[in-house]
Amino acid sequence: MNATEQIVAKARELLESGTVECVIGYERATDGVNARPLFVYQAEEAGKLIFDQTCAHNLAKYLLNRKGKATAIVAKPCDVRAVNLLINEHQVERDKVLIIGVVCPGMVETKWGRVSEKLRQACELCREHTPVVYDFLVGEPGDEEAAVEYPDVARMEALSIEERRAFWEEQFSRCIRCYACRQACPGCYCSECFAERLDPLWVGIRIAPSESWIWNTMRAFHLAGRCIGCNQCERVCPMNIPLSLLNRKLEKETLELFGYRAGVDAETPAPFATFRKDEKLEVGE
């Protein structure tokens, strides 16, 4: 059976047996070639489910809308790390989530009505093809994964501070503050985002370079040591701002300083959520 057939069969079984109330997966979008999220509540609707290289959405975000309800989720390796992040941060209960893990071939670049054969940059750089945890696995687990590399971050680091500033100023100048990056991010779930707080006021409502600069940098920093690299922020950005580059820089720093990558398991305390007296990291000595 191919991935789609396995997912359909599993979803049908889980819904028929009443193991879960809902299976979150993918179906074909209205352009006929892309995928979109699908919530399946009835076993007879399971046949709509698909899986292919256009299923780039991270569905873990939707678990936040189904707290306490038994839910199965179709999850690629990065999505599974998002589930781990949400369990680690006490947002989701492990025993309410049934993970239909998928061995990931990498997602391809798509536009409305068009699908390319080129892997997304995030997928090109990704070394994790088998989910770190699952209840049911679709596909054959691969060999041991290679070490993570950050060639894109290294390219940015090679620029001078002035060049980097100019680069980001130009990128952020396009931001329309639609918050699609935040809404798609599994790590962004504050009941009131700093960007909407009035007291204290962190950032004004202007859709202008000064405010966009604050919004985009604070968004990235709030994900330091938490970003699981699913690249949703960048995928959904209507203005093509390379947001994940900021997140990957922070991911690289966190890995170097703490040997930590978010979502690899659901237990290890996150570096910015722990305090160890002996931990000085040679900062500010």
């Binding site: 329309i176 503050r177 935040r182 409502i205």
Partner: peptide, 23 residues
């Protein structure tokens, strides 16, 4: 709405959406 992310993309790309906030 199950799958809606509640971002503002649709409104901001729309030629007719006209809501605003004032501060």
């Amino acid at each position: 709405a199950d799958r809606c992310l509640h971002c503002n993309v649709c409104s901001y790309v729309c030629p007719t959406c006209y809501c605003f906030d004032v501060r």
